[in-house]
Design a protein around this nucleic acid. Structure first.
Length: 398
DNA sequence: TCTGGGGTCCTAGGACCC
DNA sequence: TCTGGGGTCCTAGGACCC
């Protein structure tokens, strides 16, 4: 048996209720119970075990609502380092079967199985079955997989295989089976695109495929053309096993426990976010040109202000300085503040030529290094940067 | 129902340059 | 009175994904 010329066999792998499943492995007393991982009562559900889903709980649902639907569930805060470790083990198993493994998120990835006939002397669905079985046995979690001729179809097929299943759709069957699914099951079609399409009677994947590319482009812009390729099975994107593109932005957000109009307090939160995100930048040996401060008001309107520097920097002093100026520009709103965020972009190697003219920057860099070391060992609050100590000025508003 | 936090990519207008 | 055009960078906002 061998692959037909030009035919691809792409496997999409997705762990079921990943965060909740990992928690149930780490705490066997939670097996069989409804488990909900969520970021707190003003947040949303990150993952719900299948026991919790029976009560109607699903991810992205407000935690408050999940509590109403399933008050007896075990609610847990996320433990990202544990999820990362399980993720690493899962992908290590996958890489044992094919060198072409693409990691798309902590619990999801693609494997190109086109070459497995030759490599393993077994058809791709057999290889996929072994792979998923090894993950289940090794990690104790459930995983699902879908095999199809394109990445898009493989991912949609996984959706049909859940929970804990594996499904292979031959090309001619994939067209028929997937065509019946609703438009929003195509990855990339969210609420907005769904509304635009359905308002015009375009309800299913098949309806999209039957349109002309031009019509879709008129409806959805550039994305319309790409969507047409996905829906018609002309998605030629390869499985990319090489290293991911370097990270393009670093951000940190925080939702306040209560909406606040106390700009002094809110600024102290923004300053902490800035310090934390700057430390991540330094840990990667990188710098940022652009700083963005985002404010979400109690009415859920967002406002962001950004500014760009001439040279990439990772000095806390520089970044806090920008953040303070930007935060001042967001003042004067009618509602309290719900959430704030700091984003660093325009990422590059930090530039130091200004050092020649300003030895104080060396001192600032040394101070950052010291603060990072202490905080890495004793925690963020082991060091407190006081206002008026040369950086991190108060907002001067309100 | 009452809406997180981490990202990526796209659009559109204005400034600026040649 | 009429007033280019293309390229690139910056900013603000928004859609989408897990």
């Amino acid at each position: 048996m061998s692959a037909l010329p030009g035919e691809r066999y792409i496997l999409h792998v997705d762990a079921d209720a990943f965060f909740a499943s990992v928690e149930q492995v780490l705490r066997p007393d939670l097996q069989g119970l409804p488990v909900i991982v969520s970021g707190g009562d003003r947040g949303v559900v990150s993952a719900a075990s299948y026991e919790a889903r029976r009560f109607g709980v699903h991810s992205a649902m407000p935690t408050v609502q999940a509590r109403k639907l399933c008050p007896r569930a075990v609610f847990l805060s996320p433990n990202f380092s544990a999820y990362k470790e399980f993720s690493t083990r899962m992908f290590a198993i996958m890489k044992g079967y094919s060198p072409q493994v693409e990691v798309t998120s902590v619990d999801e990835g693609y494997v190109d199985l086109t070459g497995t006939f030759r490599l393993h002397r077994a058809p791709p669905w057999e290889i996929a079955h072994r792979m998923l079985s090894e993950i289940r046995a090794g990690l104790g979690i459930n995983v699902s997989g879908g095999i199809a001729g394109t990445k898009c179809f493989a991912k949609m097929t996984t959706g049909l295989a859940k929970p804990n299943g594996l499904l292979y759709l031959e090309p001619q069957h994939a067209r028929i089976v997937l065509a019946r699914l609703p438009v929003e099951s195509i990855p990339g079609v969210g609420k907005k695109a769904e509304e635009i399409l359905k308002r015009r009677g375009i309800m299913t994947v098949g309806d999209v495929a039957d349109l002309s590319r031009r019509r879709l482009q008129r409806l959805l812009g550039k994305w319309g053309g790409a969507l047409w390729e996905l829906a018609t099975g002309n998605d030629g994107r390869p499985v990319v096993s090489s290293h991911r593109d370097p990270q393009k932005s670093y951000s940190k957000e925080h939702t306040l426990e209560q909406d606040s109009k106390d700009l002094g307090h809110v600024w102290s939160v923004v300053a902490q976010l800035t310090e934390k995100v700057a430390a991540r930048l330094r840990a990667d040996g990188r710098g940022a040109c652009t700083v963005t401060v985002k404010v979400r008001s109690a009415d859920f309107s967002d406002m962001s202000r950004s500014m760009s520097l001439k040279f990439p920097t990772n000095l806390t002093r520089d970044l806090l300085d920008c953040a303070a100026r930007l935060f001042r520009l967001t003042a004067g709103r009618r509602f309290g503040i719900r959430q704030v965020g700091v984003k660093l972009s325009g990422i590059d190697v930090p530039v130091l030529q200004t050092d020649l003219f300003e030895p104080r920057r060396h001192i600032a860099a040394a101070r950052d290094r010291t603060v990072d070391q202490i905080r890495n060992r004793f925690g963020f609050h082991a060091v407190k940067i006081l206002r008026g100590s040369g950086y991190g000025q108060p907002p001067g508003v309100g």
